[in-house]
Design a protein around this nucleic acid. Structure first.
Lengths: 356, 356
DNA sequence: CTGAAAGCGCTAACAG
DNA sequence: CTGTTAGCGCTTTCAG
């Protein structure tokens, strides 16, 4: 690892001059010719700044803290972290990730991140919901990921839940489905409520009446399978919107047991939270792929914009990585665009999960 | 953030004394009473050392670098990283994770980790295979995760692939299956080869002849489904060992289409790489859960042991987190213990993936 | 325009 | 036993 001192010696100038030049603070302070020589030898020696030493003076480490509660254990979290990592990397930052199991060790993990001098935090949840931001985070630049600050004080990056379900339901309608079911989540998440609203609005806009018997909000395992089974028997849907692909699987299973073919007898659109099922089910299943990678990317970008207000970030954007497998015999198009929304910090309008 | 200087002032001693005491180097160097006073005020002020400042002097950051090639994108990788994180956290380390897309940016990412002064590296792959360790890593403490150094110079932590399949096949035999199929991966991974061997040996030991028509090694999607479909039609298995749960799904689908009930007409054991499928399929599917978390945990532990040879690590161990859902109507027990093996660095016996 | 000097928080020789 | 001193690599006044 070559240091500024070495460059200074090689070039025959002082370390301070090297520092000025290498930090682009040499405008009218260092003679252009000297600056050029410094840059040259820096190049030759392959100089890389030592961020830790710098941080000792500046208080800035160029490290972003990523806090995920259980996120690392759910399969789709990787995408978020990956996106955040890529953005960080492009912007010259590193990502320091910690996992908190519930709220128990959250304070500790946050304290540790602080000791390592992170410049700001990303606070991620595993499904879009309202959260109370921990007090320890309040003095730092902070961006919420797949979550919303209940008090509306901090910016967040989330999927446009309403549009996900609206577009998905619309595709089913366009495909000629007339009895479109909703298989959702029985917890009052922002995601669940937003998607439910989107589903209802799409039906409404198409002139369909909302029919409660077509809705099954479930959790998992046996009870979920039975509830979806009941739904099939009582309502005989010809199209289904699924909250996520775990739930799509129940639909898939019920159809198989009844000799129904997905894509012919019944069309299914599922939000793909898990990616794995996309790999196996997607030939018959139309998926809305949640832009996890992009969420992470935008969140990191946003966070850096808070840390360095002056910095021009206009050249950076998440590449379009939303990849969905082509349908083989599905009657509806496979790819549904999912947009992200970025909620700016606003005055609190503290809604409650159960009321949304 | 309170500093040593503040403690020194409060206590009326010098910073060096504080440093000695707080680093437990005060044995016979600092009067016990003074040491106690220092510790007291440190406690009161809630002193936390600044690892970055320390690293400037010692060259040790207590940061571990975790390099994953695409691992972060595969759903099960979270477990490995989580385990590594937990171990690191317990040992007073942090994990700095980077993702390399293939070998293209690998050098860059490694260089970045070095700039941040990591004390050692973990190099993880997404499925157990032989790898060539990048040159840039060779001077650092290094542990491979779910991979083996082709030259045998670096230690690695991997699942015991042979035993996984041996035990799983044995369970199917014990459950009374007589026509046990193997649905595997057509790539020559250590995992695939080891599991294939375990399957064959278990059959052998039980007096069954190996029957090629009962084997289908596949990749994914349509072709995989067709291959498994063929297997069902030509060999009519009453038990199936699946390389992973993605492949188990094809079996599941084929059974459903033929009116066969998993757990009654055909018993299935699958290695669970993806966790999600375990949540949905497991009531009917017996799973061998790969100990991803433990793998990460042990790898981090091993790495710290290389970094601090003197340190007593005997108190640390991965908690048993292997959790498998109970079978509902499966005739074979649901939980199969998967052991980890730790390969020490040995003299090269450079095998090739394709020959194993 | 450039360099000397101080200091970020901490550790490690070396005096006293 | 304890304090002084020097320095890790870097930034930032402040003289010159």
């Amino acid at each position: 690892m070559t240091t500024m001192k070495e460059i200074a010696e090689q070039t025959g100038v002082s370390v301070s001059t090297v520092s000025l030049v290498l930090n682009h603070r040499d405008e009218g302070r260092v003679k252009a010719e000297i600056a050029a020589r410094v840059r040259d030898t820096a190049q030759q020696l392959g100089y890389q700044s030592n961020p830790l030493a710098r941080s000792l003076r500046t208080g800035k480490t160029r490290i972003l803290g990523f806090i995920s509660e259980e996120v690392a254990t759910t399969p789709y979290a990787g995408g978020i972290i990956l996106g955040a990592q890529d953005a960080a990397s492009q912007l010259g930052y590193m990502l320091l990730t910690v996992n908190t199991d519930g709220a128990s060790n959250e304070s500790d993990e946050i304290a540790t991140l602080k000791r390592y001098g992170v410049d700001g935090f990303m606070y991620a949840k595993m499904s879009n919901r309202y959260v109370d931001v921990p007090d320890e985070l309040k003095d730092y630049p902070l961006v919420l990921v797949d979550a919303t600050d209940r008090d509306g004080r901090y910016p967040s990056v989330e999927p446009d839940e309403f549009r996900i379900a609206y577009d998905a339901t619309r595709r089913l309608i366009d495909a000629g489905c007339a009895r479109i079911a909703y298989v959702g989540c029985s917890e009052p998440l922002i995601a669940q409520n937003g998607r439910m609203d989107g589903y209802r609005r799409a039906l409404e806009d198409a002139g369909f009446a909302y029919d409660e018997t077509l809705v099954a909000n479930v959790l998992n395992n046996g009870p979920a399978l039975r509830a979806v089974s009941d739904l099939f028997d009582r309502a005989r849907p010809d199209g289904v919107f699924c909250f996520n692909d775990a739930r799509a699987w129940y639909v898939y299973e019920c159809a198989a047991r009844r000799g129904l073919t997905i894509g012919r007898d019944v069309s299914v659109v599922g939000v793909d939270n898990h990616r794995v099922l996309a790999e196996t089910l997607s030939p018959q299943l139309t998926t809305v792929e949640l832009p996890h990678y992009e969420m992470g990317y935008w969140a990191a970008l946003k966070l850096v914009s808070l840390i360095e207000p002056g910095r021009d970030l206009s050249g950076f954007a998440a590449p379009d990585t939303t990849a969905v497998m082509p349908p083989i015999d599905a009657p509806v198009p496979a790819k549904i665009h999912c947009t992200l929304i970025e909620k700016e910090s606003v005055r609190g309008d503290a809604p409650d999960d159960t009321l949304v």
